[in-house]
Design a protein around this nucleic acid. Structure first.
Length: 433
RNA sequence: UCCGAGCUGGGGUAGUGGCAUCCUAUCACCCUGUGGCGGUGAUGACACGGGUUCAAUUCCCGUGCUCGGACCCA
């Protein structure tokens, strides 16, 4: 027996059935919004990451030399690949480019709850529009796919913020503030106590009085008082950022998703590359302690990977943390396989059973029949184990009367049907059992 | 990388310095006509390495893995 690699997981049919349903729900929502599916290599040139020196992600690459000594790596994220795809067909792609892609990614990092070394995400992005309505469409989709999964507004908080608002307010205190460090501090503020938070802000260049004032300001700001915050900051940047965020929130309203979104300037996202709107989904109860997923606008990133300057906004729900929220809320799908019919053979009825099985399968039902030569009782036990809704008993006694016996596995009730009348010509799996 | 807890058949467990228990699951048979809910049987475990000991699954050390947390989070 070989062990699995640490941080890598197997998914057995029952677990996979639930995952499949979640992924399908997410992807179906994407398709309704007109996002188109893409696929891309899971192995890329390692230089796509190592050329950008000083990035922490380089430490986490599954990188190696291939047989021709190319320096390659399993992909830790989609962005550089997406940037390449956009750059390669920059001219011919109609804008905006709206893509989604569900894929595994790999990072050699410490395994803990909701974090693995191989993990699956659906990346959802719009490239080529800097209009607030693009941000809003992405946010609306993010909120909608959560409700599609069975969550309601009480289950999650969709917190929306704006990097440039934080940055311009910080700079209004002192132009020499390390905005990047200060924003990281904001991102951590919820996990640490106030004193620590203010210490971090002080490290970034604020005085303790300024740190306290900044803390109060961004905590107290509501949608209606955003303009006051811009006045306080007093810069064109601040006014532009507030105007942008307001426009995004208004557009979110028009997309009908505002009930699930709230302004929360304390939300910042830990990543440096965000340039505008950022948002993050949290468990309302706090039981799932980490962010479920997040996203935002990253207008400079495509260019930094060698593409043309291309505005971009997107997010990536991951199937490590999302199930934690769904389970907490009690809406994670059943982990069970489903079967419409089991065709049970009794005596020498293999030919008739095979034909009936084929007819049912032609009607797109999920159908199994005996492939092990088992006894009646053993076949019924197996049918139970695969959650067969209906067992069709094809026995010599039944066939002698030109009929089958249908057993409803839920109720145990049985009835006979004429061989000529089953299966019916039309009707879905739910209608004719 | 660090901290904490843990590791006994596939899953869940009992237990012990000397015979490893039970439940469940799986498979077969009873059984060519009734599963989830009968009977019989079979398969199958002390994470790995080293140490102490006459003897280690048990005690000690190390490693691995699992779970939780810290750090990190292009």
């Amino acid at each position: 027996m070989y062990d699995r690699l640490k941080g890598f997981r197997d998914f057995y049919p029952e677990e996979m059935a639930a995952r499949r349903e979640v992924i399908d729900t997410v992807e179906t929502a994407c398709r309704r919004y007109g996002f188109r599916e893409t696929a891309s290599p899971h192995l890329e040139r390692a230089e796509m990451w190592t050329d950008k020196a000083g990035e922490g992600i380089v430490e986490e690459l599954y990188a190696f030399g291939d047989r021709s000594d190319r320096h390659v790596t399993l992909t830790p994220e989609l962005t550089p690949t997406a940037a390449r795809m956009v750059a390669a067909k920059q001219q011919e792609l109609s804008k905006p480019i709206k893509w989604f892609s569900t894929r595994p990614f790999w990072r050699y990092e410490q395994v803990q709850q909701g974090r693995f070394r191989e993990f699956y995400q659906t990346n959802i992005d719009i490239f080529g529009s800097s209009d607030p309505r693009a941000d809003a469409e992405v946010i609306a989709l993010g909120a909608e796919l959560l409700t599609d999964l069975g969550l309601d507004g009480d289950d999650f908080e969709f917190r929306v913020s704006h990097r440039d608002i934080l940055g311009s307010v910080l700079r209004s205190f002192d132009v020499d503030i390390d905005v990047r460090d200060a924003i990281r501090a904001v991102d951590k503020s919820e996990k640490i106590d106030t004193a620590e938070y203010h210490d971090l802000l002080a490290d970034a260049g604020l005085s303790y009085d300024q740190a306290a004032e900044f803390d109060d300001l961004i905590t107290a700001t509501t949608r209606d008082s955003l303009d006051d915050l811009a006045e306080f900051a007093g810069s064109d940047d601040a006014h532009a950022a507030v105007e942008n965020l307001t426009a995004v929130l208004d557009a979110v309203d028009r997309f009908g998703a505002s009930d699930h979104c709230e302004l929360s300037l304390e939300t910042a996202r830990g990543f440096d590359y965000y340039t505008g709107v950022v948002f993050e989904c949290f468990d309302s109860t706090g039981e799932v302690s980490r962010s479920v997923f997040g996203g935002g606008r990253y207008d400079d990133l495509i260019e930094s990977f060698g593409g043309e300057p291309t505005p971009a906004v997107g997010f990536a729900p991951g199937y490590a943390t999302l199930p934690l929220l769904l389970q907490r809320a009690g809406v994670y799908p059943d982990e069970a396989v489903a079967t419409d019919y089991y065709v049970l053979q009794v005596g020498d009825t293999e030919r008739e059973a095979a034909e009936l099985t084929r007819e049912l399968r032609e009607r797109e039902y999920v159908v199994e029949t005996d492939v092990s030569g088992r006894s009646f009782g053993a076949q019924l036990g197996y049918a139970d184990s695969i959650n067969a809704e209906t067992v069709v008993i094809v026995g010599e006694q039944d066939l002698a009367d030109d009929q089958y016996t249908l057993r409803d596995m839920e109720t145990g009730e049985q009835r006979t049907v004429s061989v000529d009348e089953f299966p019916p010509e039309s009707g879905g799996p739910a209608d004719d059992a």
